[in-house]
Design a protein around this nucleic acid. Structure first.
Lengths: 232, 232
DNA sequence: GCACTATACTGGTATATACAACAAATATCT
DNA sequence: AGATATTTGTTGTATATACCAGTATAGTGC
């Protein structure tokens, strides 16, 4: 299970970019330099760079170099923002309680979305608090073969979606918004009064055309809403 | 300006796929076969295939082959579609009942969104049926100075959003999705059972940066949901 | 007929090499 | 000093080669 060399290089470069050690517009080492740094051939270094260009992190200019690309403006429609950033942007405090971590064989519905019948799936249930008020219950299933170390993460330090976006950058997402009446257990976790509905968001995220994760997000309807802004 | 060989190969294969000469699930020629067909090296043929895999047209299975991938379901991104088209697309019947038409001075909330304190506002309330089941209650406020003839329209023939899009083409939209418990009157119109929540969509539409209309759309939660598909 | 083995084929990784097109820096000439 | 030519560095394309790890098929032995 040794990681291919081009992936090692790609991971290393991606880390430099997402950790902001290399900033937007910076020129990264040339393909030849990368190949020397990692004791690989130019073709291998090139393959790593190609992958990151496809992910949208880098941008090439022939005869000049490869540069860190500006992040997508991407405020737009029903954006995929992680709950922590959202809460911090409102100037509030974010707290997390991990309710469960499991490795399991997916049920049909989850397996269908992750198109992974033969593989394991990881499941986590996490409760998010905004200023000590429960704001989101996150029930997340992750394709274990693509993110093998998912369960080892400490989600109190980095949210699950932050981690996923790091190891398998988001390329595509499907969302569904429903209104439901909460089950008793859900009502308990979200500390809901009687007769308060929930917003249920089902979100499937893809990385390079592969479904990585499906999550069910439950919000108290009296404290949360989804917005989008669409330019035509 | 000669096209690189790998692009020629990729274009050729892509054409086979989109023209349905090669169908979903079909195995395409192996990399070696492609290289022989196009008098190229395997690496070049491989690069063509890699590109098409990245585009999502093909799918690889190590030791087995490369296959034509199932096309993406492709609902579009939280599109602003009008309810009639939506229902007709599902192959169902659409019926409309206009509950009220008014001309009034806007309350603060509506006026703020339409940024029209000094002008009149038109209001319509319309109930939409899908196969004789109430599916949407539309409460719409329109900036009267921009759409003076709004109230004269027959909304059973053309929906309000169709008409608006014709006289003031949509350039921008803001949406908000919430879950609410219906009021008694709403529950009655939507023919809801007890304890069924509603999806409330608040949508403000703009034409050339001017807010034209704000509408509140109420849906029975057990019969409706909002989806979006986001490509990054 | 059945089980096992060998072979051929597939995509995945990795390298070495070569040349083209272009840009920027450097050196050279006038 | 200024214009021109050369060199160097960069990405882009293309090939030949090698080996690995799987799968599928054909062949072999029983």
């Amino acid at each position: 299970m040794t990681k291919p060399k081009y992936k090692i290089i790609a991971d290393h470069v991606r880390d430099k970019v997402v950790s902001k050690q290399w900033l937007e517009g910076d020129r990264i080492p040339s393909e030849t330099e990368l190949s020397e740094l990692f004791l690989a051939s130019r073709m291998t270094a090139r393959k790593a760079v190609e992958q990151l260009v496809a992910e949208g992190l880098l941008e090439r200019s022939p005869s000049i170099g490869t540069f860190v690309k500006a992040p997508k403006a991407q405020s737009s429609l029903l954006e995929i923002k992680n709950i922590r950033d959202e809460i911090l942007e409102r100037g509030h405090e974010h707290k997390v309680v991990v309710l469960s971590k499991n490795s399991l064989v997916p049920n049909d519905k989850v397996a269908l979305e992750l198109s992974s019948w033969d593989v394991k799936v990881y499941k986590v249930v996490i409760l998010h608090f905004e200023n000590n008020t429960p704001i989101q219950l996150e029930e997340r299933y992750v394709n274990a073969s693509f993110v093998p170390e998912f369960l080892d993460q400490d989600f109190t330090k980095k949210t699950s979606s932050e981690y996923l976006n790091k190891v398998a950058p988001l390329s595509e997402a499907k969302m569904m918004v429903e209104a439901i009446m909460p089950s008793k257990i859900l009502s308990h976790h979200l500390n809901l009064n009687e007769n308060v509905p929930c917003l249920k968001i089902t979100r499937t995220t893809f990385s390079s055309h592969t479904p990585i994760s499906i999550c069910y997000l439950y919000y108290p309807a009296d404290k949360y809403r989804v917005t989008s802004h669409l330019l035509i």
